[in-house]
Design a protein around this nucleic acid. Structure first.
Lengths: 226, 226
DNA sequence: GCTTTTGTTCATACTGAGTTCATACAAATG
DNA sequence: CATTTGTATGAACTCAGTATGAACAAAAGC
């Protein structure tokens, strides 16, 4: 399920966008300003960002530039007026598409879907984890020396999750929700088994990270620095 | 060098586009109408098509639909007026982007470049796959020793797809959408059979690649390193 | 027409990822 | 230190997902 971050100071617009996108099975997260958006993007890596140029505080341009530093998620800009100069500036900053206010929500939906589709194909989602590289396109773990190992789905998803947010605590509940799906009706303890398998998988390789148990809370990935 | 097909009955516009795109190192081919454009596209597979909706004879909509049958090259439409209904219709037909007349050539250039980048255009219609070479025009596989084998369409398209993105995971759903067409209403499992046939076709030849199953996910082409 | 090639569906067997479970272990609590 | 609570682990089990052969359909050659 794709996750789209919508950044606008106008709650009405955010809601409008949410309504339409959720109809298409897209998860929508709303933020009011650049600072909040940036913080969210850092921790949750949305699949796409819809942002308004005119915002108090950090404006759309700054946010766009900062988001580009985080990764290459597609960005769709909403401009108040159809200024060509703005559009050119945006393209140079790495924006992928434009909409001019007032926009038709249907068109927004279509453009978002088109971008998401393209992004899936062209952008490799990869996470660096010490000497390892996790490639979501191939579900492979690539070692520093070039050795490639394909992990089972759940194991990969878990490691990818941990690797995306090193140091962050994940409750079993949260992991189940994100990886298994919110309507999973099995035993929460199955997470333990997969963690165990991940541990023994990388135990032999003297890896520079480990998954730590926080008793009563969950798990956390710890990167060992030398 | 990317190759862009520009379709418009107005020679001035074609020339304008040509001037700007060639400045960016893009090869431009001009056609005056839908019929000519279609014939060209069939034989030369441009990397991107810029087309005007308003044309005598076959209009932009028809051309767009027919181009889509040929392949999934990106299409940028030029509309005379900014009609939302048109844009929505276009998106449904598979258009990737829009420009409204009169447009700024600079913006056209930016959008064309963005689209090409998004599609990660590779201009050759052949794919090297270890010792094999896949020629999309003839649906032939050429072996290192010069032996040429013509594959059945589906098998070739599959192998070509895999060969174009080695290591990348493809879900059955995605393969069906790209090769069979988005409105295919058959059993998804038919992919399995074609994969199986591809496997047994190249099993005897000791090939340096293989199609790997990712349980619950799809398939992936793995190139064996020596 | 007929044969051959290509594509799809189906039934069956098979595999292994994912789950569950029982037990052993470790950490907190009083 | 005894008890409780939470976690680790090995192994068994289950079943969704896959491989495969063959039958069937449809198109392309002859």
């Amino acid at each position: 399920m794709p996750k789209v971050l919508v950044v606008d100071d106008d709650a009405h617009i955010r809601e409008l966008v949410r309504l339409y996108l959720e109809d298409e099975g897209i998860e929508v997260v709303q933020k009011r300003n650049g600072a909040e958006a940036l913080e969210y993007a850092e921790n949750h890596s949305p699949d796409l960002v819809v942002l308004d140029i005119m915002m108090p505080g950090m404006d759309g341009w700054d946010l766009c530039a900062k988001l580009r530093e985080l990764g290459d998620m597609p960005i769709l800009m909403i401009t108040a007026k159809d200024e060509l100069a703005d559009r050119i500036k945006g393209f140079k900053l790495g924006t992928d598409d434009y909409l001019v206010k007032p926009f038709d929500p249907t068109e927004l939906t279509l453009r978002v879907k088109a971008l998401l589709k393209r992004y899936r194909i062209t952008c490799s989602q990869t996470v660096q984890l010490g000497d390892l590289q996790l490639d979501r396109k191939s579900y492979q773990v690539v070692y520093k020396d070039g050795l490639e190992v394909t992990l089972p789905m759940k194991e990969f998803e878990l490691l990818y999750k941990f690797g995306s947010y090193p140091g962050q605590l994940f409750t079993r509940d949260h992991l189940i929700g994100e990886i298994w799906g919110k309507d999973y009706e099995g035993d929460e303890r199955t997470v333990d088994v997969h963690i165990k398998r991940l541990r023994e998988r990388f135990a032999e390789h003297e890896s520079d990270f480990r998954i730590v148990t926080l008793r009563g809370l969950g798990y956390r990935l710890e990167v060992c620095r030398d």
